[in-house]
Design a protein around this nucleic acid. Structure first.
Lengths: 341, 341
DNA sequence: ATGAAAGCGCTAACAC
DNA sequence: GTGTTAGCGCTTTCAT
């Protein structure tokens, strides 16, 4: 049960060299070391099955090689893919990823930032839509400032309440594209299920909807980005006397809920109702009919964000925000409105 | 950009006490310290906005307060929930969770274990089904041994190739229950879509199927635990001359794929075909009709596993394996076989 | 109850 | 090229 690993000193002794020399070959710097000396050290390493303590190294270098990712909930496929993107490039670069499920709770988020700071993480990624919470904004800004001051590079994959570089798509524009598509199909009465107004992504997507409205009738109901919420909101819309011919849910989970509501009411999709989502998550592609959705390149966003962090850590000037391209994926869930339009 | 945090020495100096004393009050031990001294230190802490370096503390105590979780892919909802379970209790106990996506690749898994060892993690959780790979088993065992020897407690949420405590359900028995249920409904020709034979969970679930077979005709096709794979396998089964009246996919993703296949062929579910899954993941509940499935209490498994780790870390004797209860959730996707049975 | 000092395992000047 | 040594920031005997 005791801790009995070999350390650098053991290696140095066995190889008959100084601690410094051992360190130089082990840490793989380009520092000049005689071939034979290097061999001796390496063989000592093998014999002792030595592997360096990442902790000690982190303490000495102020570089932990750990990246923190703040998400609403990894259980949500939207976030999961974002995390995968980050993790994929992080791993290859020798970085570890810590997932922080903040459940969209400001206090939890702040607490996590503090912990990440204590661990001297090299980077922090805000994966989810930023929270809009005025009285929380300042402490958030402070936490981020301390993090950055400690040398960590902070970045977001969606607009957030603090001033950090953002790698994301244009959420507003995605909505515009989708609404236009629905209009092109002939829809003039569109129900929109929005997300929590405390979330920047929800806000931006809704803004796009308003922008593209034109002379269509748009019925907006606010919901919570969950399938259950989408289900309820869809029921509301479908029960209305002004029943829409199409429903655009501002995330896939809600679209899935809406689809379920349609099924329950025996409304055929896309025959009598068009349902589309936002995000293009895996579950949305697996419904019947498969959902059309605004494609948010989550893996790519995560990967690009992580690459930007690595670049900055490697000495690059500063990370600049990037707007990644999006598109809309048209699948079986949408068609022209039924009957005489 | 420079690193400018206050450290314990600063606090001690400002409070006019020794490093040792400062440490004692900051680290929150029960060590006796005069009330006034404690106050002085605390106020210095506040003034300096001091927070201890988790890294330094970890180095000094050999306790990193970090837990590593090895999963196939966080993007898979099955794993995501498992991770959430672990994370929820970890966070409350002041532990951080590192997610390691091994993609079911032995080499990646081993590499990650090495990294986790270097970070001196306090615990490692194997979340997914263990890989069955003979030539990999030994190095896996070695890695685990080193980890344990370093003081980490290792545990699995499914049977794995090494001897560690397991917190899981009885996968075999879950299959038995589901097959029995299908038989009770009247099904006598059941198609089973199995998982990769390199996975212990897939193996156990299949074993249960065989055990409960009785005199039913069971058609087994091997697949890969993905929706796509399930889709293909279902097509195979549905095209066969001996078309089954029910399909039991050994994980939900494949069941979802099977459901899609049925939809594409215009086969009504559950009218003409029953489709059931294993896992009870969120996406499975959101299909139409909603899938019946063997309920694997993933959040509970993760949480229980993490609690066991904490107990052991806190000095408890040893972690013992636990078999959590499972059940089957019956939803709209199953019914009696069509026609004259 | 408090302080001095020796690590934890590694890196990075700075000498030789 | 290689070795010496002083930290990184904290905990923890051992004195007092």
């Amino acid at each position: 049960l005791g801790d009995s690993r070999a350390n650098l000193a053991d290696v140095a002794k066995l190889a008959g060299v100084s601690l410094a020399t051992a360190s130089r070959v082990v840490s793989g710097t380009t520092y000049p070391v005689t071939k034979t000396t290097r061999e001796r050290v390496l063989s000592a390493v093998r014999e002792l099955r030595y592997t360096p303590s990442a902790l000690a190294r982190a303490l000495a270098t102020s570089r932990s090689h750990i990246i923190g990712v703040i998400v609403g909930d990894v259980g949500d496929p939207y976030f999961a893919e974002l995390v995968r993107g980050v993790e994929d490039v992080a791993r290859r670069a020798g970085y570890l990823v810590i997932v922080c499920n903040a459940d969209r709770d400001p206090a939890t988020e702040i607490a996590y930032l503090g912990t990440l700071l204590d661990y001297r993480v090299d980077g922090v990624v805000f994966a989810g839509g930023g929270l809009i919470a005025p009285d929380f904004q300042q402490s958030l800004a402070e936490s981020v400032a301390r993090l950055e001051q400690s040398g960590a590079v902070v970045l977001a994959l969606a607009p957030v309440a603090v001033d950090v570089p953002i790698v994301s798509i244009d959420n507003r524009s995605g909505s515009v594209d989708m609404i236009r598509h629905l209009q092109a199909l002939g829809h003039r009465r569109i129900g929109v299920i929005g997300g929590p107004r405390t979330l920047t992504t929800a806000r931006d997507r809704l803004e796009g909807v308003r922008e593209a409205r034109g002379d269509s009738a748009i019925l907006i109901v606010e919901s919570d980005f969950t399938a259950r919420g989408g289900h309820e909101s869809a029921n509301e819309l479908l029960a209305s006397s002004e029943r829409p011919t199409a429903i655009f849910a501002l995330n896939d989970q809600m679209a899935i809920g809406a689809l379920t509501a349609a099924h329950e009411r025996g409304i055929s999709v896309p025959g009598s109702l068009t349902v589309v989502g936002y995000g293009d998550t895996a579950p949305a592609r697996q419904t019947w009919p498969p959902l059309s959705s605004v494609v948010v390149p989550r893996h790519e966003m995560g990967a690009t964000g992580m690459r930007a962090i690595l670049a900055r850590l490697g000495g690059a000037e500063r990370v600049s925000s990037q707007v990644l391209p999006h598109r809309i994926a048209i699948r079986g869930s949408c068609g022209p409105p039924a009957g005489p339009s």
